[in-house]
């Protein structure tokens, strides 16, 4: 179940990058471990901001100040794992 959810989360993240950010890349260029900025996909600061805002909206989560970090947002895999843990924690809190 968790494996399915992580795949869904990563897919949704990739869709945001491809469809909603102003980046000129193909779907096959985004694998789970390629860097989202610097020498990878190369998201600039404006794209990163838009990405953070969209991720918060689409997943209905809010990043704390210490969660907005280069390490967490380094690639789809690390970000996806973190979002899944946040979603799981939030649903446990509600229950």
């Amino acid at each position: 179940m968790e494996e399915h959810n992580i795949q869904a989360v990563k897919l949704k993240l990739k869709e945001i990058v491809l469809n909603d950010l102003d980046v000129n890349i193909e779907a096959q260029e985004i694998d789970d471990t390629v860097s989202l900025y610097d020498d990878g996909i190369g998201l600039d600061s404006i794209a990163i901001i838009n990405f953070i805002v969209l991720v918060e909206e689409r997943f209905n989560i809010s990043f704390e100040e210490n969660e907005i970090s280069a390490r967490l947002f380094s690639n789809i895999q690390s970000l996806g794992e973190f979002i899944l843990s946040k979603l799981t924690k939030d649903s446990q809190t509600v229950n």
Binding site: I68, S69, A70
Partner: peptide, 13 residues
């Protein structure tokens, strides 16, 4: 170096 908003947050923290 090659500053972006994430590196800025990291550095401030």
């Amino acid at each position: 170096n090659k500053s972006n908003i994430l590196k800025l947050f990291d550095a401030i923290t």
